[in-house]
Amino acid sequence: MQKFQRIRWFVFLVLVQVLVLNYVHINHYATPLFYIYFILKVDSDIGRKNLMLWAFALGLCVDVFSNTPGMNAAASVLLAFCRPLLLRSQILRGSPDVFEPGIRAMGFSHFLRYAFIGTLVHVGMLDVLDAFSFVHMRALLFAVVSDVLMTLFCIVCVELVRRRK
Protein backbone atom coordinates (compact mmCIF):
# COMPACT_ATOMS: atom_id res chain seq x y z
CA MET A 1 0.00 0.00 0.00
CA GLN A 2 1.29 3.46 -0.89
CA LYS A 3 1.32 6.22 1.68
CA PHE A 4 -1.53 8.17 0.11
CA GLN A 5 -3.67 5.09 -0.31
CA ARG A 6 -2.96 4.15 3.29
CA ILE A 7 -4.26 7.49 4.56
CA ARG A 8 -7.36 7.16 2.39
CA TRP A 9 -8.04 3.71 3.85
CA PHE A 10 -7.44 5.09 7.33
CA VAL A 11 -10.06 7.84 7.01
CA PHE A 12 -12.53 5.56 5.26
CA LEU A 13 -12.29 2.81 7.88
CA VAL A 14 -12.62 5.24 10.81
CA LEU A 15 -15.72 6.84 9.30
CA VAL A 16 -17.35 3.49 8.48
CA GLN A 17 -16.62 2.26 12.00
CA VAL A 18 -17.90 5.28 13.93
CA LEU A 19 -20.87 6.16 11.73
CA VAL A 20 -22.20 2.71 10.83
CA LEU A 21 -20.58 -0.31 12.46
CA ASN A 22 -20.60 1.05 16.05
CA TYR A 23 -24.41 0.96 15.84
CA VAL A 24 -24.61 -2.64 14.64
CA HIS A 25 -25.65 -5.00 17.43
CA ILE A 26 -27.46 -8.28 17.62
CA ASN A 27 -29.24 -8.33 20.96
CA HIS A 28 -26.59 -5.96 22.43
CA TYR A 29 -23.74 -8.25 21.39
CA ALA A 30 -21.79 -8.88 18.19
CA THR A 31 -20.47 -5.46 17.16
CA PRO A 32 -18.12 -5.70 14.17
CA LEU A 33 -14.78 -3.97 14.84
CA PHE A 34 -13.87 -3.87 11.20
CA TYR A 35 -11.32 -1.03 11.44
CA ILE A 36 -8.57 -3.48 12.48
CA TYR A 37 -8.58 -4.61 8.83
CA PHE A 38 -6.22 -1.67 8.36
CA ILE A 39 -3.67 -3.10 10.83
CA LEU A 40 -3.98 -6.62 9.43
CA LYS A 41 -3.46 -5.54 5.82
CA VAL A 42 -0.43 -3.22 6.04
CA ASP A 43 2.54 -4.50 4.00
CA SER A 44 4.71 -7.02 5.79
CA ASP A 45 7.88 -4.91 5.61
CA ILE A 46 6.53 -2.05 7.77
CA GLY A 47 8.54 -1.46 10.94
CA ARG A 48 7.09 -2.60 14.21
CA LYS A 49 7.28 0.87 15.75
CA ASN A 50 5.80 2.48 12.66
CA LEU A 51 2.86 0.11 12.72
CA MET A 52 2.26 0.67 16.44
CA LEU A 53 2.08 4.44 15.89
CA TRP A 54 -0.40 3.96 13.03
CA ALA A 55 -2.48 1.65 15.22
CA PHE A 56 -2.41 4.11 18.11
CA ALA A 57 -3.68 6.92 15.87
CA LEU A 58 -6.37 4.64 14.38
CA GLY A 59 -7.62 3.45 17.76
CA LEU A 60 -7.62 6.97 19.18
CA CYS A 61 -9.69 8.27 16.24
CA VAL A 62 -12.30 5.58 16.83
CA ASP A 63 -12.18 6.31 20.57
CA VAL A 64 -12.80 10.01 20.16
CA PHE A 65 -16.09 9.32 18.40
CA SER A 66 -17.32 6.61 20.71
CA ASN A 67 -16.46 8.30 24.05
CA THR A 68 -14.02 5.62 25.14
CA PRO A 69 -10.67 7.48 25.22
CA GLY A 70 -7.79 4.99 25.29
CA MET A 71 -9.76 1.76 25.01
CA ASN A 72 -9.66 1.05 21.27
CA ALA A 73 -6.18 2.60 21.11
CA ALA A 74 -4.83 0.21 23.76
CA ALA A 75 -6.30 -2.82 21.97
CA SER A 76 -5.02 -1.68 18.55
CA VAL A 77 -1.49 -1.08 19.84
CA LEU A 78 -1.48 -4.57 21.36
CA LEU A 79 -2.60 -6.04 18.03
CA ALA A 80 0.11 -4.10 16.16
CA PHE A 81 2.68 -5.32 18.67
CA CYS A 82 1.65 -8.95 18.14
CA ARG A 83 1.26 -8.76 14.35
CA PRO A 84 4.85 -9.57 13.29
CA LEU A 85 4.79 -12.70 15.47
CA LEU A 86 1.45 -13.81 14.01
CA LEU A 87 2.57 -13.14 10.48
CA ARG A 88 5.80 -15.09 10.98
CA SER A 89 3.89 -18.07 12.37
CA GLN A 90 1.50 -18.24 9.41
CA ILE A 91 3.98 -17.50 6.64
CA LEU A 92 4.74 -20.08 3.92
CA ARG A 93 8.31 -21.02 3.22
CA GLY A 94 8.47 -20.02 -0.44
CA SER A 95 6.69 -16.64 -0.09
CA PRO A 96 8.39 -13.36 -1.08
CA ASP A 97 9.93 -11.05 1.51
CA VAL A 98 7.49 -8.18 1.05
CA PHE A 99 3.81 -8.88 0.55
CA GLU A 100 0.41 -7.58 1.55
CA PRO A 101 -1.15 -10.10 3.96
CA GLY A 102 -4.28 -11.48 2.34
CA ILE A 103 -5.90 -14.53 0.82
CA ARG A 104 -4.00 -14.00 -2.42
CA ALA A 105 -0.58 -13.96 -0.79
CA MET A 106 -1.11 -16.42 2.05
CA GLY A 107 -3.87 -18.80 0.99
CA PHE A 108 -7.30 -19.00 2.60
CA SER A 109 -6.60 -21.19 5.63
CA HIS A 110 -3.42 -19.38 6.64
CA PHE A 111 -5.03 -15.97 6.27
CA LEU A 112 -8.09 -17.12 8.23
CA ARG A 113 -5.90 -18.35 11.08
CA TYR A 114 -3.88 -15.12 11.02
CA ALA A 115 -7.02 -12.94 11.03
CA PHE A 116 -8.71 -15.06 13.72
CA ILE A 117 -5.84 -14.84 16.21
CA GLY A 118 -5.37 -11.13 15.48
CA THR A 119 -9.06 -10.40 16.00
CA LEU A 120 -9.12 -12.48 19.16
CA VAL A 121 -6.21 -10.51 20.66
CA HIS A 122 -7.82 -7.20 19.78
CA VAL A 123 -11.39 -7.99 20.83
CA GLY A 124 -10.23 -9.78 23.99
CA MET A 125 -8.29 -6.73 25.14
CA LEU A 126 -11.11 -4.36 24.18
CA ASP A 127 -13.90 -6.25 25.93
CA VAL A 128 -11.85 -6.85 29.07
CA LEU A 129 -11.07 -3.12 29.26
CA ASP A 130 -14.73 -2.30 28.64
CA ALA A 131 -16.06 -4.57 31.37
CA PHE A 132 -13.05 -3.95 33.64
CA SER A 133 -13.96 -6.86 35.90
CA PHE A 134 -14.31 -10.61 35.66
CA VAL A 135 -17.45 -10.70 37.77
CA HIS A 136 -19.82 -11.26 34.85
CA MET A 137 -17.59 -13.88 33.26
CA ARG A 138 -20.22 -15.46 31.07
CA ALA A 139 -21.36 -12.16 29.58
CA LEU A 140 -17.75 -11.20 28.93
CA LEU A 141 -16.97 -14.48 27.17
CA PHE A 142 -20.12 -14.25 25.13
CA ALA A 143 -19.24 -10.68 24.11
CA VAL A 144 -15.73 -11.73 23.06
CA VAL A 145 -16.92 -14.73 21.04
CA SER A 146 -19.74 -12.86 19.29
CA ASP A 147 -17.57 -9.82 18.49
CA VAL A 148 -14.78 -12.00 17.12
CA LEU A 149 -17.15 -13.95 14.87
CA MET A 150 -18.81 -10.78 13.57
CA THR A 151 -15.51 -9.01 12.92
CA LEU A 152 -14.00 -12.07 11.25
CA PHE A 153 -17.08 -12.43 9.08
CA CYS A 154 -16.72 -8.84 7.83
CA ILE A 155 -12.98 -9.22 7.20
CA VAL A 156 -13.36 -12.47 5.24
CA CYS A 157 -16.26 -11.08 3.16
CA VAL A 158 -14.34 -7.94 2.18
CA GLU A 159 -11.23 -9.97 1.51
CA LEU A 160 -13.09 -12.37 -0.80
CA VAL A 161 -14.71 -9.50 -2.71
CA ARG A 162 -11.44 -7.60 -3.08
CA ARG A 163 -9.57 -10.69 -4.27
CA ARG A 164 -11.96 -11.16 -7.17
CA LYS A 165 -11.23 -7.67 -8.54
Binding site: G47, R48, K49, M52, L53, F56, G59, L60, D63, V64, N67, T68, P69, G70, M71, A73, A74, V77, L78, F81, L129
Partner: peptide, 29 residues
Amino acid sequence: YFLLFVLLEVICFILLFRFNSYQGSVFFT
Protein backbone atom coordinates in the same frame (compact mmCIF):
# COMPACT_ATOMS: atom_id res chain seq x y z
CA TYR B 1 10.08 -1.32 20.04
CA PHE B 2 9.03 -2.93 23.30
CA LEU B 3 9.59 0.37 25.12
CA LEU B 4 7.44 2.15 22.54
CA PHE B 5 4.74 -0.47 23.06
CA VAL B 6 4.76 0.08 26.82
CA LEU B 7 4.76 3.86 26.34
CA LEU B 8 1.75 3.81 24.00
CA GLU B 9 -0.19 1.48 26.27
CA VAL B 10 0.56 3.71 29.27
CA ILE B 11 -0.77 6.72 27.33
CA CYS B 12 -3.93 4.76 26.49
CA PHE B 13 -4.50 3.81 30.11
CA ILE B 14 -3.89 7.35 31.32
CA LEU B 15 -6.53 8.57 28.86
CA LEU B 16 -8.92 5.84 29.95
CA PHE B 17 -8.58 6.47 33.68
CA ARG B 18 -8.56 10.22 33.37
CA PHE B 19 -11.84 10.13 31.50
CA ASN B 20 -13.40 8.03 34.20
CA SER B 21 -12.21 10.10 37.13
CA TYR B 22 -11.44 13.61 36.01
CA GLN B 23 -14.11 15.69 34.39
CA GLY B 24 -12.01 18.10 32.35
CA SER B 25 -10.79 15.83 29.59
CA VAL B 26 -13.41 16.83 27.09
CA PHE B 27 -10.88 17.01 24.25
CA PHE B 28 -10.62 13.27 23.64
CA THR B 29 -14.38 12.67 23.52
